[in-house]
């Protein structure tokens, strides 16, 4: 069994606003292994996105410990965590979050430029990344000139361009119709098997979850159970 790339132990996340106290995560334990695709499921407000944010270092945990590749995140300051994100992580969001005025290739090369890669090298790697997701003909297209699925593929290309150890995907097909959703899911599986990165996918879609190696079921801020998935792309046409 592959070693865990991310380990969460007793993770709590509490939001406090005046007298209001919301316990979004209540003692979550979770391991994500290298090359593994993990789906996080649960009803709205159960803490899925919060878990993703905490595990990726986008947000602080209130209690507990998260380690990435054996390094505890709690010991890192903001700058170090930012560096870690830019070098070891990729992100895919439901609403794509592409800069609308930039072309596909410009969007993809952003993480490389921020990591200090030379512009020429960044351009080459961004082109490769877009080629990998099947968008080579669309390098100079702006997001609004692409379909939703294509936009999400640009996002995926951007998440992979810096060869991360793990990709965090929050509802990657949430804004897509079935056909485009399928394209994205297939692509994620294909990349997972070809590049071996780990994927944590927050989703409401059982079919997407079923295609992952493991399915983490959450409820009210705790992990209710972990089930095994099929570990291969499942057709979304059935839904």
């Amino acid at each position: 069994m592959a070693e865990p790339i991310v380990q969460a132990r007793g993770v709590w996340k509490v939001y406090e606003s005046g007298r209001l106290r919301v316990e979004a995560l209540r003692g979550v334990d979770l391991d994500v292994r290298r090359g593994e695709m993990v789906a996080v499921m649960g009803p709205s407000g159960c803490g899925k996105t919060t878990l993703l944010n905490c595990l990726s270092g986008l947000d602080d945990v209130s209690k507990g410990q998260v380690t990435l590749e054996g390094k505890p995140m709690a010991g890192l300051n903001d700058l170090e965590r930012t560096r870690l994100r830019s070098r070891r992580m990729g992100f895919v969001f439901q609403s794509f979050n592409l800069l609308p005025v930039l072309t596909a290739i410009e969007n993809v090369e952003l993480p490389l430029l921020v990591s200090g890669v030379a512009p020429r090298e960044a351009r080459k790697r961004a082109t490769d990344s877009l080629e990998r997701v099947g968008l080579k003909p669309y390098l100079d297209h702006k997001p609004r000139e692409l379909s939703g699925g294509q936009q999400q593929r640009v996002t995926i290309a951007r998440s992979l361009v810096n060869e991360p150890a793990i990709v965090w995907a929050d509802e990657p097909t949430g804004n897509l119709d079935t056909r485009h959703g399928q394209e994205v899911v297939d692509l994620l599986h294909e990349l997972n098997s070809s590049l071996g990165q780990s994927y944590v996918i927050v989703t409401h879609d059982e079919l997407i979850a079923r295609g992952c190696h493991r399915i983490v079921q959450m409820e009210s801020g705790v992990v209710r159970g972990v089930a095994a998935g099929e570990g291969r792309s499942v057709s979304l046409a059935a839904r």
């Binding site: 990726s56 986008l58 903001d78 700058l79 930012t82 560096r83 994100r85 830019s86 070098r87 992100f91 969001f93 979050n97 952003l110 993480p111 921020v114 990591s115 951007r158 810096n162």
Partner: peptide, 9 residues
């Protein structure tokens, strides 16, 4: 998004 991509503050 920029912060998620690795931009420092």
């Amino acid at each position: 998004m920029l912060r998620a991509l690795g931009y420092t503050a």
